[in-house]
């Protein structure tokens, strides 16, 4: 399995990368971590004429807090999230997610930006970023713009990125601290390590006592497009948590997703699994919220 031929460019500035992307348009692909792209090229499912390797552009790998956000450089490796004490301590939903993406070797190269920009509903970050209410920063010929994550995923493998734009940053609102109790969690059911999710659920919420003040839920691999479980959120927000409420939230999530049958399971199984995981992940997030974890 050998990739087809292509021209390779390794620009060292973002502007050069954008210029190359503008020049080659649809014939070009951005090469970041490469762990979705290169296997597809080996099977010749992807045969780009031009690869623009953005790995030599400095200052695209970072994790820091600024302006009430966790900001993550587009080229940040998944393993950096795992190793970041900031992420581990204050962003447990993101920490949960980073641990279950592919396998540890893949995570040493695969990037957060690539995971989102590929817009594969089987990828894990989309659900997580939807739950966080994150935004992404895109660089194009006219400079940078910010896109709310809710507007980012437009179709299967399609995003709001323009053809000549590169995803350079992800911005996650820092969960509130102090009197508000924020919590988050990601729960993924995979057939084995390295597999895509059969279903996975991300939640980020704020509790006041036993009442859910706010919540966002994201679902992985149970819809053609990465999705927020809005109906499920509606069942959750403003409610005092008990088994009945959780069941209603789970059922809502199961009803609003649109999985397809494959080797991972039937439609019925994936829906029911989504219900079960939704209940469990909310319990976990609430536990964290009450335990003082954000």
């Amino acid at each position: 399995m050998i990739p087809g031929s292509f021209d390779y460019h390794a620009p060292t500035t973002l502007d050069d990368a954008v210029a190359l992307l503008t020049e080659h348009g649809g014939d070009a692909k951005i090469l970041a971590g490469g762990h979705s792209l290169i296997p597809a090229m080996r099977f010749r499912l992807a045969v780009p004429d031009v690869l623009i390797d953005i790995n030599r552009i400095p200052d695209l790998e970072y994790i820091r807090e600024e302006d009430g956000h966790l900001v993550i450089g587009g080229l940040t490796r998944e393993s950096a999230l795992e190793e970041s004490s900031l992420v581990q301590e204050k962003y447990p939903l993101l920490a949960d997610t980073a641990k279950v993406i592919a396998d540890p070797l893949v995570r040493n190269l695969a990037t957060v930006g690539g995971n989102l920009a590929h817009a594969d509903p089987a990828n894990d970050h989309p659900a997580t970023m939807l739950a966080y209410g994150a935004s992404v920063v895109a660089h194009g010929p006219n400079g940078a713009r910010t896109i709310a994550i809710d507007d980012f995923f437009v179709d299967l493998f399609a995003t709001a990125l323009e053809r000549s734009e590169i995803l350079t940053e992800i911005r996650i609102p820092t969960p509130p601290t102090g009197s508000a109790n924020a919590g988050g969690a990601y729960l993924k059911m995979e057939r084995k390590v390295g597999d895509y999710a059969v279903s996975a659920v991300a939640v980020q919420l704020v509790m006041d006592g036993d009442t859910v003040v706010s919540a966002r839920l994201g679902l992985t691999n149970v819809n053609p497009v990465p999705m927020r479980a809005i109906a499920a959120e509606a069942e959750l927000i403003g409610k005092e948590l008990n088994d009945e409420v959780l069941e209603a939230v789970g059922r809502a999530a199961a009803a609003e997703c649109d999985p397809s049958a494959d080797l991972r399971g039937s439609v019925e199984y994936k829906r029911d699994l989504t219900r079960v995981l939704t209940k469990r992940v909310i319990r976990k997030a609430v536990e964290r919220a009450k335990g003082g974890d954000s």
Partner: peptide, 29 residues
């Protein structure tokens, strides 16, 4: 393998373990 699953090709690149079947030689310049 050809899908980045088996890890038989693992090497250290700048100190980190990576699957050398899923990176181009040109990238490690």
């Amino acid at each position: 393998c050809d899908t980045s699953n088996c890890g038989a090709c693992t090497v250290l690149l700048n100190g980190r373990a990576v699957k050398s079947c899923t990176i181009f030689a040109a990238q490690v310049d």
